[in-house]
Write a protein that binds this DNA or RNA. Structure first.
Lengths: 228, 228
DNA sequence: TGTACATCAGTGAACGCGCGTTCACTGATGTAC
DNA sequence: TGTACATCAGTGAACGCGCGTTCACTGATGTAC
């Protein structure tokens, strides 16, 4: 649609309104983000189901009733947190794709990226792993959906790598699923490491690297039996 | 220590006492077990951190204060539940070892046993997977310890299978860890299946079988790089 | 076997507390003209 | 620019409720002799 003078005037009016209302709207957005951040921090030691609306509001510096200006309930806030917490994982895919095409390097690079993301965003990963099979239904389903998308993305990458090697879609998905399982287990182990033993992190990452290499080796000799 | 007449008389007295006190002790044990069962059932839809002592007592048909005759707190009950819930998993190892020595059969058999155990003891597996990274610290640590033992057992089996193939202890453990990760992910997926689609269970089990076969293939061409 | 006493699983009243949610409100910010 | 009105993020009192835990108790079961 071309921008006519009429549109231009309308757009100008709208953008002026946005600038003028920005102050209040921005402050609301800041409070909202604060509620999300505070919840993520509280989740560090406990589960979503066990934190209270009043506690979150208190930590965010607002009165309990003001919470409802932003979310319908703690569970609804949790569902929004899933999306926000998946961001580091989505970034991981992008970072990995930007890496080299050599297989050993891909594995080493992927594990390194994984380690860095977990180190940089521990609260997000802790939230996802704690609530993945946690007690809040809506949150559990939201995480399952996001992880399925993540596995799909990995399946696409595997399809590209094994192009012409006669892999079935089922086998590709099965392999991607195994890789995601191994990586998620690695994430959980990384999160459980004691900060007083930083060398544990290296051991876990090396093991993860070995596991991905083992899977890659298996792939190199895999013959599909789907049509047996 | 040999059993002397004096011992025999003492043992007799003790066993008579046991029989005589059995009624009250047995009833206490029954209530205790009932508390564990009720908690396991309540955990089906929510997390341990979100169920209350009063709720468990109510469901078990006792007054809240009577709960303390059996457990110090819900968390303490949870730790005991870990041990009870690990029983199906331990049984799995025994069942699998009783299977044949052929590799393909071992995989098929193991997956079949896994599927059966999850079907027969869903509450126990749900408890373990939900609380493995859940909000109750003591329970989380208890599960981690038990799963480490489980991985050790599997490492022993792998060592037996790869005898003379020059595998290092680290590589065996790494492989066992990957297998346990894959199996636990399978358990969680089985628990999430909708009962209205029983065919999903078969799909998940077939995928698990493929994953273990892929790992076994990788093992067959694995060369340790630990001494690089 | 009978009796007197001990044990102890389960009772029921009571407590103070933090919870989610309602409601009418305030006052700073934004909008219309 | 100035004024009159609208919006709405955050307030604060109030509610009823279920919670964990204390305490003194009851009465059936068990033990000693």
């Amino acid at each position: 649609m071309p921008i006519t003078p009429v549109h231009a005037r309308t757009l100008l009016a709208v953008s002026e309104a946005v600038i003028r209302t920005a102050s209040r709207a921005q402050r609301k957005e800041r409070t909202r983000q604060n509620l999300l951040d505070v919840t993520l921090r509280l989740i560090g030691h406990r589960s979503l189901a066990s934190i209270s609306l009043r506690e979150v509001a208190r930590e965010a510096g607002i009165v309990p009733t003001a919470f409802y200006r932003h979310f319908e309930s703690i569970d609804a806030l949790g569902v929004e947190l899933v999306d926000e917490s998946m961001r580091p994982l989505r970034q991981m895919i992008r970072d990995t794709r930007r890496g080299t095409a050599d297989k050993i390097d891909i594995i080493r690079g992927t594990v390194a990226i994984l380690g860095r993301q977990v180190r940089d965003h521990p609260a997000q990963f802790r939230f996802l792993s704690r609530e993945r099979y946690g007690g809040v239904n809506a949150v559990r389903r939201a995480i399952a959906t996001e992880l399925r998308l993540f596995t799909s993305e990995l399946t696409i990458d595997l399809a590209r790598m094994t192009a012409g090697l006669d892999w079935t879609a089922e086998d590709l998905e099965m392999t991607a699923d195994l890789m995601v399982s191994a990586m998620l287990a690695t994430v959980m182990e990384l999160l459980e490491t004691d900060k007083r033993h930083p060398e544990d992190e290296q051991i876990i990452l090396e093991r993860a690297e070995g596991q991905l290499r083992l899977i890659a080796l298996g792939m190199s000799v895999w013959r599909s039996t789907a049509r047996d």
